[in-house]
Design a protein around this nucleic acid. Structure first.
Lengths: 285, 285
DNA sequence: TTGCATTTTTCATATTGCGAAATACATTTT
DNA sequence: AAAATGTATTTCGCAATATGAAAAATGCAA
């Protein structure tokens, strides 16, 4: 549903784009590889399937799926449990995927800040970015409490029902926000989820005004979250820092205190990545 | 040397293995897919390369590499920076890879490795982590011998007088080690216990140099133990594997042999949990 | 033992992935 | 400006090889 795959975007590269570049969706990609990756992704989304399950659910030949799997297995990208005859994501995939984080120093720079934020607030601290219209959680530092919020890194979450998501949306320019909203149906998770665009827009206005976002049980009942945006050098909100925990410990009485810590942390990270907060100076909108 | 990838191990699956299964290394995997994954892995190991760099370094045709990359790009597994004309690991790879963690725990992954280690060495194999400045034993596979070391899971033990503890301390960064040591009095258990901080630090230096720790009757008289660290994705030593037994069977003459098995096992487990050993490359300190 | 379900291999065939070379840009050099 | 350079991207024809159907092999249950 999301627009993560911008496959048919035309102006792909800067250089070397000969003629035939207008209408018909050319098939330049490798078909077999794409099919293999489809199997890989499908397997990862719901691990522990058997070969025949995968083959039938993807309506592909068992022979093909089998060959794909053993090829990936040879590289450790998937794993096979001989006892149960089931297939899983392999350790190698984790290692490779984790290298995504190396591309920017965002996570490295965020870690001490997240840790300090967790110590100060006592609740789990999270770091996330926007990816394909969703929030992608990159990292977290967990609280010591036994009851804790848990967003394992790598989780994708809807923006409109997430603290970090709303913090990012609130500081997005009108155009991008419009494109994000367009043709998107806001899924309902709890009774508190903001599904009416008007309500969401209004809440985002408030969010920008106060400088941080609140997720009050909008995704999971009993869970609250306070988030603030992190800006890059162009003043664009590119990441968000949040603190999340059970509503019982994160009530209105502590919102003031926690939000201050979160906003401070986000500001620290903005500074650490060389960003600047243009919203401090020009009050756009 | 280690047998983590049992790719060409013959008895692969339980079911359905027809005849031709003896000598020549059959090519059952998909060649093109394997090549594509090689490109993917290579890219991930050293991101920010251009197409032509990748092609020449992998000695493959630029056309092929190009097609692989745009196919993976369409799925978000790799990303392209049009400004710099460089390729990177994509967010989707992170999402998929992170699902590896959803499956099993350290203990589950350690079990077969501990068992193999016990079989190979004939002595009890243990798994432990650091918890609150102590070593917490999570699991063990006991030897068949009647005289055996015994650490029931759940046991807490002082780090400075434990093989696993010393393996963990040896690979801890200076700051954390300093905090650990500060204001801690090293209890004496036997005449061999290292209670002088200087002696301990020196021993840890040796430990890191050789890659494994030795507990020579430092906790219990008559008991020796050889341990090696297990690393997580950040290259931090988060667990340790050890082999322990009576000094009579674990003398200096077998230290060489056993330590090799222990180090191999620890490396296997590191790989199995998606960790990386940064100490293999940069010799810190 | 006999089925049954599933994995794994074989095999013939057409699909399609492949590399060389050509082409198209962008950037730098002359 | 024009040429040279370095890179990305496409075309094209052919051979490599991925593919699916079906057969074979296996484990499990009755």
């Amino acid at each position: 549903m999301s627009d993560a795959q911008n496959t048919q975007e035309n102006p792909r590269r800067a250089r070397g784009r000969p003629r035939g570049w207008d209408d018909k969706t050319e098939q330049k990609t490798i078909k077999s590889l794409d099919r293999a990756m489809e199997i890989f992704e499908y397997l990862s989304a719901d691990q522990g399937k058997t070969l025949s399950q995968l083959a039938s659910e993807l309506s592909q030949s068992p022979a093909t799926v089998y060959r794909v799997l053993i090829t990936l297995e040879a590289r450790g990208l998937v794993e096979f449990d001989p006892e149960e005859q089931r297939w899983y994501v392999g350790a190698r995939a984790f290692v490779i995927g984790a290298r995504f984080l190396r591309r920017t120093s965002l996570v490295d720079r965020a870690r001490p800040i997240l840790r300090a934020l967790m110590e100060r607030t006592g609740e789990t601290a999270n770091l996330g970015i926007e990816k394909g219209g969703m929030v992608l959680f990159l990292n977290q530092v967990e609280t010591h409490e036994s009851i804790r919020a848990f967003f394992p890194p790598g989780t994708l979450s809807d923006m409109h029902a997430s603290g970090i998501g709303k913090a990012l949306l609130a500081f997005m320019d009108k155009d991008r926000f419009g494109r994000w909203l367009k043709g998107r149906s806001l899924e309902t998770f709890t009774a508190h989820t903001l599904v009416a665009p008007d309500a969401l827009v209004q809440e985002l206005r408030r969010t920008r005004a106060r400088g941080y976002a609140i997720d009050a049980e909008e995704k999971n009942l009993g869970m609250r979250c306070i988030a603030a945006p992190v800006f890059d050098m162009y003043g664009e909100a590119v990441a968000g820092i949040s603190v999340s925990g059970p509503a019982t410990r994160m009530g209105r009485d502590v919102t003031e205190r926690i939000s201050r810590s979160v906003v401070d942390a986000a500001r620290d990270l903005t500074r650490a990545v060389g960003g600047s907060n243009r919203h401090d100076v020009d009050g756009q909108e």
